[in-house]
């Protein structure tokens, strides 16, 4: 960097030669401050989403840069929320990018005292086997008067109310076809 530009970069010089003799504004602004820009403007993409917390359904904009969520804020277009969010909705970025989020399948064997890691596909196979086993063990074809029951009471499920409608649909469809009627949801708690 030439001496000249270095001198011109020196705020004292700018105080003496510029419009800010007291050095309280333009003279002392650093290059970094001058080039500041909001990371939402330099994001690769923005997804239109909805807050996962309560049922007001505030609109959210999720900004992504290099495959990472860099900001989640309110969607000013939403007629429900007009770009606003509550403390929980505002904490959505922390929720999604928290390092406390579990990212590995964990398995606790019967009588085990700690978690073990398990491969995703293996876990899915083990769960499928257990579902069929439990179903077989507790299947009820008919009641005592011969009326069809066509069900198992050996499997239970309790869903949160932050599941998508599409997910709820597949869950209900699969469990019903499997005869597992004991599925419940936070709507009742």
């Amino acid at each position: 960097m030439g001496v000249r530009t270095w001198i011109e970069g020196w705020p004292v010089y700018r105080q003496l030669t510029g419009t800010d003799p007291l050095g309280r504004g333009a003279a002392s602004q650093s290059a970094r401050s001058k080039n500041l820009t909001a990371r939402t403007e330099t994001a690769d993409s923005m997804a239109r989403s909805v807050c996962p917390y309560c049922a007001v359904g505030c609109g959210q904009r999720i900004f992504v840069k290099d495959g990472e969520v860099v900001q989640i804020e309110g969607d000013p277009d939403s007629p429900i929320s007009k770009g606003r969010l509550c403390p929980k909705g505002s904490a959505s970025k922390s929720l999604v990018t928290s390092d406390r989020r579990q990212k590995k399948v964990l398995y606790r064997r019967p009588y085990g005292t700690d978690w073990e890691e398990l491969d995703l596909e293996t876990a899915m196979d083990m769960i499928a086997d257990r579902v069929l086993a439990a179903r077989e063990e507790t299947w009820e074809d008919r009641d005592e008067d011969g009326r069809p029951l066509n069900r198992t009471l050996g499997i239970s499920s309790l869903g949160g109310a932050t599941l998508d409608n599409e997910e709820n649909y597949l869950i209900k469809k699969l469990f019903t076809a499997m005869g597992a009627i004991q599925i419940e949801n936070q709507a009742r708690i």
């Binding site: 989403s49 359904g57 999720i62 992504v64 999604v96 399948v105 064997r109």
Partner: peptide
């Protein structure tokens, strides 16, 4: 026997929520 299966967050899947005025809103996957 316990299987902990980590889940995707609301930003990592597309789908609809139905909010308290019966309105379905589609979320785009980020």
């Amino acid at each position: 026997e316990v299987f902990f299966m980590p889940a995707a967050s609301h930003a990592e899947k597309e789908g609809t929520f139905t909010q308290t005025q019966r309105m379905l809103q589609w979320r785009e996957k980020a």
